[in-house]
Computed example of a mutant assay.
Amino acid sequence: MKVVVTGGAGFIGANLVRALLAEPGITSVVAVDDLSTGLLENLDGLPVPLLRGTILDPDLLDEAVAGAASVVHLGALGSVPRSVDRPLPSHHANATGTLSVLEAARRHDVGQVIVASSSSVYGANPVLPRQEGLRPVPVSPYAVSKLAAEAYTIAYAACYGMQVLPFRFFNVFGPRQAAHHAYAAVVPRFVSAALAGQPLQVHGDGRQTRDFTYVGSVTDTLVDAVLRRVGVTDVVNLAFGARVSLLELIAELEEIMGRRLDVVHAPARPGDVRDSQANSDRLRELFPTVRPTPLRAGLEQTVAWMSGRVLAGQ
Rank of each mutant, 00 (worst) to 15 (best):
G123P: 00
E252R: 01
L147V: 09
A31D: 08
V164D: 10
D224Y: 08
Y142T: 13
G231E: 09
V215S: 04
G241H: 12
H265F: 13
D57G: 06
L88C: 07
L283V: 04
L50H: 13
V32T: 11
H181T: 01
R52M: 02
V115G: 11
T233W: 08
R284W: 05
H108V: 01
E255Q: 13
T221C: 15
R106N: 01
T98S: 04
A95S: 01
G216Y: 11
Y156C: 11
L134E: 15
I256N: 04
R259P: 06
G231H: 13
E300D: 02
R274D: 02
A66M: 10
G174H: 00
L147H: 06
L200V: 14
A104P: 09
L227R: 14
H92C: 01
M257V: 10
G111C: 02
D57I: 07
A68R: 10
G216P: 11
V310S: 07
R130L: 11
A64G: 05
A116Y: 09
G197S: 12
V110K: 07
A179L: 05
V101R: 08
F240S: 09
G174T: 06
E150A: 05
L56V: 04
Y122G: 06
D34K: 05
N279D: 15
A185G: 09
L134Y: 12
T6K: 09
V264R: 03
E255Y: 01
A104F: 05
I55K: 03
L40S: 02
V223T: 15
V113A: 12
I154G: 08
R282L: 15
M257R: 02
L21E: 02
Q201T: 14
D62Q: 07
V115P: 10
A148K: 00
I250K: 05
R130A: 14
P188W: 07
D62G: 14
I256P: 00
H73G: 11
V144H: 04
V17K: 06
G25P: 00
V30M: 12
L295P: 09
G241P: 14
V232R: 11
I12Y: 03
F240Y: 13
L128Y: 12
A266C: 04
A149E: 02
D57T: 09
L16S: 11
R259N: 04
T219L: 12
L56M: 02
S36Q: 03
R82K: 03
A278G: 15
G67R: 03
G161N: 11
G241M: 13
T27Q: 10
P166D: 15
V110A: 10
F173D: 06
D262R: 15
G8I: 04
A278C: 12
L238R: 10
S117H: 06
G53F: 08
A104W: 01
F170G: 11
E41N: 06
G13S: 14
I26Y: 05
L227F: 04
D224E: 13
R168P: 12
A95I: 01
L246A: 07
H265A: 04
G241E: 13
D272P: 00
A182W: 07
R228H: 11
G111I: 05
V172Q: 09
P81F: 00
S70E: 10
G97T: 00
L128P: 13
S245D: 03
